[in-house]
């Protein structure tokens, strides 16, 4: 599904990624761990097509060269990024944002736009699966949301847009244990053999709930070590100092 070869990324003339390789197949859950500044969020940004990075190397997504696609085209083709800090958009109703987003993705796939009634039915169903109060949907997007609410909203969007590859950028940070469980349940219920996850995290904590197939340790912009889910537990004990 995703194949990254020798990826380098620079921002403001500073090298962040230095020859990163990674393959993700459908049905897999990959976790990326690593110390602050190792390039985890840069990887998420480069994959989603954020402006401002100078890149080299190759990223293929379902056979297509990602470098040639805009951010919205990548999103329309099924790359979803759950933001570490979801943005507030004042004056924009959450429901309207979600519907506009869903319709943009549907339109790109050549599907018909969803009508308001069907949308409301769909979104209420998805929200209730995540234990999100309906009232939350008529509030302004992320404005005045708690940290937990913002993250739940990201997961709600993921479940609504049905991406092929979901990148979770430190979705667990700042979550209390209940919110963490809700987020993890959201991911687990969406996971299937056709989609994949790239979970960026500092802590083993989230991985107690979402079991990864692979854990990669990122250090100095490269993958320094790859292992199974046991690697996370080991890191929790020994820290990142011995790796890389």
């Amino acid at each position: 599904m995703l194949s990254i070869q020798n990826l380098e990324a620079k921002i403001d003339n500073k090298n962040i990624l230095n020859g990163l390789n990674l393959n993700i197949n459908p049905g897999e859950v990959h976790a990326i761990m690593g110390p602050n500044g190792s390039g985890k969020s840069t990887l998420a940004n480069v994959l989603s097509g954020k402006n401002g990075y100078e890149t080299k190397g190759q990223i293929k997504f379902n056979g297509e060269n990602l470098g040639e696609l805009t951010t919205e085209e990548r999103a329309q083709k099924g790359i979803f990024l759950a933001f570490q800090y979801p943005l507030e958009i004042p004056g924009v109703n959450t429901n309207i944002f979600l519907r506009t987003s869903l319709n943009a993705v549907r339109k790109a796939k050549g599907e018909k736009e969803i009508d308001t009634l069907s949308f409301l039915k769909l979104i209420k169903e998805k929200a209730s699966e995540l234990g999100i109060d309906e009232k939350f949907l008529s509030r302004q997007l992320n404005v005045g949301f708690s940290g937990g609410e913002k993250k739940k909203n990201e997961i709600l969007q993921m479940k609504l847009l049905q991406p092929k590859l979901s990148i979770l950028d430190e979705t667990d940070s700042g979550l209390d244990i209940d919110a963490l469980r809700i987020v993890a349940d959201g991911v687990n219920s969406y996971k299937n053999k056709d989609n994949a996850f790239l979970i960026i995290t500092h802590y083993q904590r989230l991985l107690d709930y979402i079991r990864p197939d692979f854990i990669h340790v990122l250090s100095n912009g490269k993958i320094a070590k790859t292992g199974g889910s046991e690697l996370g537990i080991e890191l929790e004990k020994t820290g990142y100092a011995n790796i890389g």
């Binding site: 989603s48 951010t71 999103a75 979803f80 943005l87 958009i89 944002f97 987003s101 943009a104």
Partner: peptide
């Protein structure tokens, strides 16, 4: 960027 990542093109994003 947030809007683009949700599939909205530049004009839709600005409009929103």
């Amino acid at each position: 960027y947030y809007c683009n990542q949700r599939g909205l093109d530049q004009e839709e994003a600005v409009s929103l």
